[in-house]
């Protein structure tokens, strides 16, 4: 079980790092993409927590559709934060 623990901690730090970058950056497009990376990494944690149904849903929606919706909306409005 030690390998599961190592994978879980690596995924945890990846998720926190991408969430912090999404808050800190001034570029909204990068923020949306790193939010999608955080969702993808969290879906691997769902798999480690024995929830395969939720992992499939989160991988296709959190990383695919939510990011696409944000990117289309950023394309219709403006890219840079003041």
């Amino acid at each position: 079980m030690i390998e599961f623990t190592i994978i879980a901690w690596v995924m945890s730090f990846l998720a926190i790092a991408s969430a912090l970058y999404a808050i800190k950056t001034k570029d909204l497009l990068s923020a949306a993409i790193s939010m999608g990376i955080a969702s993808l990494v969290v879906s691997i944690m769902f798999l480690l927590l024995q929830a395969p149904d939720v992992a499939i849903t989160e991988a296709s929606i959190g990383a695919g559709l939510t990011m696409a919706v944000f990117i289309y909306a950023i394309g219709k409005t403006e890219r840079w934060e003041e």
């Binding site: 149904d53 499939i56 849903t57 296709s60 695919g64």
Partner: peptide
């Protein structure tokens, strides 16, 4: 594992 909600979202990702 799976069902209507994951399957529907995979299909929507294909159209995306």
């Amino acid at each position: 594992p799976g069902g209507g909600f994951p399957g529907g979202s995979v299909i929507a990702s294909g159209f995306l």
